[in-house]
Amino acid sequence: MDLARAGETAQLAEFLDHGFVLDQTDVAGNTLLMLAAYSGQAETVAMLLARGANPDLLNGREQSPVAGALFKGEDEVVALLIAAGADLDAGTPTARVAAAMFGREHLLS
C-alpha cells in the first residue's frame, strides 16, 4: 500500500506480478488505486488501470478514487480515471459534487 502512495510503480508492479491482489484493500478500505490517485501518482494509477484495477471501488468512507483525485487537485489522475470509465456519480461525495465544490467541473466534460 505504501508503494502505491509513494508512486513506486515498478516495485509495485513486481509485487502484482508475484500475486499481490490488484484490488486488495487496507484496513480503511482503500485500494492501491485509491491510494495512488489520492496521492497524485499518475504513473502508478495508469499502471494499475492497465492491469484492470476497478476505478469504482469505494473506500470505507464511501469515497471514490476520482472524487479523491478531484479533492486533491490531481488533474492528470482525474483524466486517467475518467478515461478508464470511472463512475462520476458513485460515492459520497460524488465526483460531480466534488468538482462543483472546488470549481473543477471543466475536468468532467
Rank of each mutant, 00 (worst) to 15 (best):
D56M: 15
T9E: 09
L80A: 12
T31C: 12
E74Y: 12
Y38M: 07
F20M: 11
Q41C: 11
L12D: 00
G29K: 02
G60Y: 14
T31S: 12
D87C: 15
T25Y: 01
L58V: 14
D89L: 13
S64G: 15
E76T: 10
L49G: 00
T44M: 04
V66P: 00
K72Y: 09
D87G: 12
A10K: 12
Q63K: 12
G73F: 07
V66A: 11
N54L: 13
H106L: 11
V27E: 15
F102P: 02
D26K: 04
M34S: 09
D23Y: 09
D75P: 04
E14R: 03
Y38P: 00
A69E: 00
D89E: 15
L3Y: 03
D75N: 10
M101P: 03
R104F: 12
L22A: 07
T94C: 11
L12A: 06
S39P: 05
E62A: 15
E105L: 15
V77T: 14
T25G: 04
Q41A: 05
D26W: 07
S109R: 13
V77F: 04
A69S: 10
G19L: 05
D75Q: 11
E8M: 10
L22R: 05
A84V: 08
N59G: 07
R51Q: 07
L22W: 06
G103H: 10
E105Y: 13
D89A: 14
A37K: 01
F15G: 00
L108G: 09
D75I: 03
P55W: 02
A86D: 01
A79Q: 14
P93T: 14
G7Q: 03
G7D: 03
E62W: 10
L33Q: 01
L3P: 00
A84E: 02
D56W: 11
R61N: 15
G60V: 10
V66T: 12
V27A: 14
S64W: 01
D87T: 12
G91K: 02
A79E: 14
R104Y: 10
R96P: 02
M101W: 09
L58A: 06
A36N: 02
T44H: 00
A67V: 06
S64N: 05
G40T: 06
N59I: 04
S109A: 13
Q11E: 12
T31A: 11
A69V: 03
A95Q: 04
A50W: 08
E62I: 14
A42T: 08
A50E: 09
R96W: 10
D26H: 08
T44E: 00
R51S: 06
D75W: 04
E74M: 12
